[in-house]
Amino acid sequence: MSKITRRRFLAGSAAGGAALMLTPAQKALAAGSFEGFPEGMGVLVDLTRCVGCRTCEAACNEEQHLPEPSKPFDDFSVFDEIHHGQKRRTTDKAYTIVNRYDVKDTEEPLYRKIQCNHCNEPACLTSCFVNAYKKTPEGAVIYNSKVCVGCRNCMIACPFHIPAYSYHSVLNPVIKKCIFCYDTRLKEGKPPACVESCPQQVMTFGKRKDLMKIAHERIKKNPDTYVNHVYGEKEVGGTGWFYLSNAPFEEAGFDTDLPKKPIIDNVKDFLAIVPMVLTIWPALFTGFHLLATKGKSHGHGDDHSHDEQEGH
């Protein structure tokens, strides 16, 4: 084979390959520099108010047409349930869960409602290789189950352990999670079912930026009550639902080691090398090849007669 053919082949394959894979890489780099929609809605969750009545769980079940629960929603024995040493978590049958935590220094237990936090830069969204997730301008992180392949990477990525998977469906298993009641309520500007149902107004619904102000005012007005931190203001780039608490957040089961940067920032360094490898490698290794084989026979051992190894 002549050098010309080889070079031409190389140039062709390298250029083609680069074009094919550069585009996604560039898009990936552009993604993730997103700060959340300024007018996006959010929910301020004030844990000091929650009495653990589980009305929100019932409301979500009704609103989202979820299957029958295994125990009634006014059965408080669920707070003692332990699975693998863990308290309850969201499942494909329950998009929101209230757990009880015994905190130090107070007799009163603390209750915490768990659901999707509708992150500003959702890890689930950026990890999805079919782009099933979408952050709507209203602030919800919703999900298109029609394209879900079922790789479950979003479950790996979500720092809050939120998305669940309907493993038991044979033909159409998909991701299931809280969608901020987007279809039925948020789209029309209405608050989610769980928020509206709560007797204690643990959750306040509004524009995220307004609520953030209110959260800080509550801390300022009641410095003895609240821990001076709004969980979700900065965590993983900020979340649409954020929390006030009277006990240290780690005691209420929050992960306080989460980075302040969005999860995708972690991955950007790697994505940045992609175009580099794609452009530098072909030239580099072709160079190696030409150098290494310069002046030597290009014969391969497989030309039948060539059984002896070439001395090196």
Partner: peptide
Amino acid sequence: GQPWRLSYPMVYSFGPAAVLFL
């Protein structure tokens, strides 16, 4: 979960920011 959709990231719905896409 839905192996018959394996080709989706190739032909139908792209999530280029995802490492798994790569």
